[in-house]
């Protein structure tokens, strides 16, 4: 009996894990292809939800806000964060450790606290532009994540690279742009992707920090109080497909790069 259970788990464990992870999304995608008020009953195949989605102007304003804020905040946070990481990295050991910890504290701070403190700050200084309030909040909460993903790459990179650049005639600034930054580029890119994802995902901080501006999550939340209309299923399904496609492309690229590197290494070894 125990043996049979063990055997069953051996063959199906991973399948079960994947099932738990993907079942909700599968249901969502399935129900985006039916036109029903409630999700309790299947009402037959239909593309009605998608038609409604493309006809709804308010959705697309929210999508535009989400995407533009994610792009701009990720870009700005990546630039500021990269230079901050380089600065922190070149500090003396003790100061570096203190500053590194201070910059990473906001990552564990509850979103609710961050959001409310933004609201209080913006109200106190009388800053009213909703879009800019959201943008500034997103740049700020993205910064620690960028520093966090650039730092390990800097640690891997050798100080000698910077010195080699100076040695060959670079001014310190040129050494940074021509040698150090290209060397830590993988860390910078992953920092950017992380920041973009966090920004497009955010609800709590945006909800409190911004006023009168809706991104996707705020929009969905505001209409979901009256039950989730089917075109939101369609929107969620589309978002999932886009993200999944991006993920597949990124992974395929890194697999291809790994294969090439391996082939080259083999070629070297056989020489």
């Amino acid at each position: 009996m125990v043996k049979r259970l063990a055997n069953f788990l051996k063959h199906s464990y991973l399948g079960l894990v994947l099932l738990f992870m993907y079942a909700p999304i599968a249901i969502l995608i399935l129900f985006s292809f039916t036109d029903s008020r409630t999700m309790s009953k299947w009402q037959g195949w239909s593309l009605g939800a998608y038609e409604k989605l493309f006809a709804d102007g308010a959705v697309w304003v929210a999508v535009k806000n989400s995407v533009s804020i994610a792009l701009i905040s990720a870009t700005v946070a990546t630039i500021i964060g990269t230079f901050a990481a380089i600065g922190i990295y070149s500090m003396k050991k003790r100061r570096r450790m203190v500053i590194e910890n201070i910059t990473q504290l906001p990552m564990v701070n509850p979103d609710l606290v961050t959001g409310i403190s933004f609201m209080l700050l913006f109200t106190a200084i009388g800053f009213t532009s909703g879009y800019l309030r959201m943008l500034i909040a997103h740049i700020t909460f993205n910064l620690p994540y960028v520093i966090f993903s650039v730092m390990p790459r800097l640690r891997q990179s050798s100080n000698r690279l910077y010195e080699a650049a100076l040695d060959l005639g670079c001014t310190p600034m040129k050494a940074l742009t021509k040698v150090v930054i290209p060397d830590i580029m993988p860390g910078i890119i992953s920092g950017f992707i992380l920041a973009f994802t966090l920004s497009i995902d955010d609800f709590v901080i945006s909800w409190f920090a911004a006023e009168g501006v809706q991104n996707i999550s705020i929009y969905v939340y505001s209409i979901a109080r009256r039950g989730i209309p089917s075109h939101i299923n369609a929107l969620s399904a589309l978002m999932f497909v886009v993200v999944a496609a991006l993920l597949v492309i990124v992974n395929l690229r890194s697999i291809k790069q790994e294969r090439e590197a391996e082939a080259q290494a083999n070629k070297l070894r056989s020489k």
Binding site: S158, R160, L161, E163, A164, A165, L166, D167, L168, G169, C170, T171, V179, P182, D183
Partner: peptide, 15 residues
């Protein structure tokens, strides 16, 4: 970067 001196580093420090 203003000295006419160049260095070969221990672990090469190639780009």
């Amino acid at each position: 970067y203003k000295r006419r001196v160049n260095t070969v580093f221990q672990k090469y420090a190639l780009f």
